[in-house]
Design a protein around this nucleic acid. Sequence first.
DNA 1: CTGTTCTCTCTTGTATGCAAGACAGCCCGA
DNA 2: TCGGGCTGTCTTGCATACAAGAGAGAACAG
Lengths: 255, 255
Amino acid sequence: MQDSPTQTTLQSTIEEAIVSGILSARIRPGTRLSENQLAGLFDVSRTRVREAMMRLESRCIVHVSPRRGWFVVEPSAEEAMMVYGARRAIESGLLRGMRVLSDAGRAAIRDHLAEEKAEMTAGNRQRLTCLMGDFHIRIAELAENPVLTEILRDLTARTILISMLYQSDFHALQSHLGHCRIAEAMEDGNFERAAELSIEHLDEVEMGLDLTRRPDPLSELRNSLSLPPKAFPSPSGGTLIQTDPIYKPFKTKGK
Amino acid sequence: MQDSPTQTTLQSTIEEAIVSGILSARIRPGTRLSENQLAGLFDVSRTRVREAMMRLESRCIVHVSPRRGWFVVEPSAEEAMMVYGARRAIESGLLRGMRVLSDAGRAAIRDHLAEEKAEMTAGNRQRLTCLMGDFHIRIAELAENPVLTEILRDLTARTILISMLYQSDFHALQSHLGHCRIAEAMEDGNFERAAELSIEHLDEVEMGLDLTRRPDPLSELRNSLSLPPKAFPSPSGGTLIQTDPIYKPFKTKGK
DNA sequence: CTGTTCTCTCTTGTATGCAAGACAGCCCGA
DNA sequence: TCGGGCTGTCTTGCATACAAGAGAGAACAG
């Protein structure tokens, strides 16, 4: 009766594009996603764009303000804490439940850490944000449980949005070291220790956030003036969706 | 910018109705959900029904077979194991991360266990299935983390579908005792023990499934003949959505 | 009786059209 | 100079129309 045995949730192209845009920190929280623009970009009608948006909304990645538009979520401080809390519970539970680390898994982790290290010297913040999130997805993949992986992928997307909002300065080295410690414990086969370390790591990252800061109340103004976002250099170009001002200047009284 | 601080995912009425129908074991896996019928029932157009379906699909609760219809998912054996694996990781991680059990929480658990006990003597299997699932949602609520609660609610829904498919006989007493043990450990403040017990409990339940059995390959035929499902008495009535045969008899050459 | 083809009706897939609301800018009065 | 209403243009919300595919049943050939 089921079409595919594993039933991997097939996403629409639009959905994938937006999620991967967030996971790679190319799309900022609060970005407006216009149905018409997306429909044009992907050459489909608004109907299918809306379907993608509905799905993204149920994954808490996108949010609609009635008759104003769709926006990438800007998690509140409270929500940020919840997301970190959830990740602590899930990732630690996942690690503690592991029994063996396969050779392939060991290799994947090593490769990932090497990449983190390499990219740290390059210092590309956007790329680093993406990598730091990816580590946790890699870990989830080790458990070979697509259900968990999918859950953690969405939480990672939200985490990346959170760090774009609240992370004043980026402790890449600290994160990297945290990841190394977790990996070490895993290589030792000490998954209980790895679980504890993952909690510590997530605590550290959460502590590094400035949750008192309002999520950039000036972002709208900033966008309207076409200024670059606060702590980020303006993207080099080629972004799928630019963070446009909400309302572009009208054709001054065209007819 | 955000409309609500906690941003609780607001579901459409249709979505809620279907999920709650599953959580209360009134809707069986494989049930066809016709867009037209739902549109009629809720007095809206197909558009809104489809939106609800899209959201449910992204939550792995519903599944579309192209141009045949929407169906409540029938998780495969493999998927069933993944769901249980995910629940083990998440629920144990959640419990192990708890620090205190509030008085309100203690009361909620006690009330729930009492209700389980009461309903066991009554022996209403449908109601019991619902209660047994609810226990885990109650636990999630104790952590006061809506993100986790939502994740576990969806996993619980899928679990209920799984048990409707694979649970040959219903070990309500066994489940109830497992819940009692977990609650006891929590009341003692021994959350580590509670976490271990939750893993054991989920293992037990999973072991109680007959995953070798194909998910009722005759269900379609059975429905077409309007026979009651295998081990369940036919619902007393008042169900929101009846498990209709896929194709009702046509008006014999109406025109 | 059995298998094949055809037709007809149902289903979802997708685009489109219209309505209602939100906001920017204008105009005007104080 | 400032504030309040008006208007126009954008947005999403929602219903509807039509296209395309899937399957049941009828008709028919062997």
